[in-house]
Design a protein around this nucleic acid. Sequence first.
DNA 1: GACTGTAGTAATCGTATGATTACAAAGTCA
DNA 2: TGACTTTGTAATCATACGATTACTACAGTC
Lengths: 214, 214
Amino acid sequence: MTSAAASAPDVVDEPGRRLSSDERRAQIIRAALTIFGARGYEGATTDEVARAAGVSQPYVVRLFGSKENLFLATIGFALDQLLSAFRVALAASDDGGERPVGKRIGEAYVDLIEVHGLHQTLAHAYLLGSNPAIGAAARQGFVRVWRFFRDEMGLDAEEARTFLAEGMLISTMIGLRIVDDYGSDPQITELFRACFPNKLPHVLEVLPRNEHRL
Amino acid sequence: MTSAAASAPDVVDEPGRRLSSDERRAQIIRAALTIFGARGYEGATTDEVARAAGVSQPYVVRLFGSKENLFLATIGFALDQLLSAFRVALAASDDGGERPVGKRIGEAYVDLIEVHGLHQTLAHAYLLGSNPAIGAAARQGFVRVWRFFRDEMGLDAEEARTFLAEGMLISTMIGLRIVDDYGSDPQITELFRACFPNKLPHVLEVLPRNEHRL
DNA sequence: GACTGTAGTAATCGTATGATTACAAAGTCA
DNA sequence: TGACTTTGTAATCATACGATTACTACAGTC
């Protein structure tokens, strides 16, 4: 609850009320993050997104023009969330510097699992380098994160690489849903403990388990 | 050319010759690796795979039963290739131990870009944790790699985590097609140099560039 | 209270795609 | 040679999905 991620004021959706197109777009992007995260760009359907957002499928298409545009908007939102969470963590380290900066940023990254689908959607985007539009956006997004580490955090290239690597591992573990078999499969349990050395209880609490699949 | 990856005897496809179903399956899996790597599980079509393998689309489906089975077979193959390449590197370190084991394994991993689509396909699989069949297979596969690091290489949990993390970063960079903008975009150039500190020339040589998109 | 713009849906269309069926050609072996 | 198996394709099907069109309802304003 202390993270910046949880502070976003979700759009209230009283049944019957009409939202402005911008409010609706924001709401749809939230839903899209979940769906794209679970099924990937091609695997997700605009209908699933629409259902999750509580609107009709044609309206999703009309508000964004195309599924591709929706995806681009979604990864844009994810990156904004990511970087602003990082900036909050960085600022917090600057004033009351009890904990090292790296720790704080790392925790902020893990905390972003509360924004459902964010890590998975970005990871999917990073794998679509072959797609002309999405690939270009993904590369630019990745570079934005790199620049944050180098310029705003002041890391050298080696340190920044290590940060990125740890981040990619965390995203992978989340996408794999390792948490589903935690406790039941001893191999998985060991793997999971090793990969989330400190944040274990928090991750277990926040990440949805078995049955509940989105 | 020194890697184990390049030593696989590709199936020769003289036009007119009929292959055994096992030979054909192997050939199709090779093609599937490329296609799944570039487009993902949902994004790839059995028709694309068939075309790349030089057979008809129905035949692909018949030889594997379903697209899902084809994907499972493909990631099984990818994991076998990965682990056998690791074992070769490990064995080579054991006898003539000039170079440290970690370096060798890392190089073997990067060298696997010669098996087109391997890294990307595995990365896609790792993101499909929500899919019942594929998710389970992906988790088991990931655990196999983990067990290699722990049991066969003898790493402790911390070291193994670092290895995995570096691997995930490399896979991400490949999936992003960072190479495409290497040289033209200065940001990308710096990022790329930092992430492939040693293997740079080799990677640049082996990874396909711009136009050539698979 | 008609007029206009915006939010939203129902119905539908075209197409891509995984799968199935039916059939042809090649190989094997008595 | 003839029966039988195995490799392989052409034609086709059913369906899912992104997109389009045509329409409705609500809100503000003059």
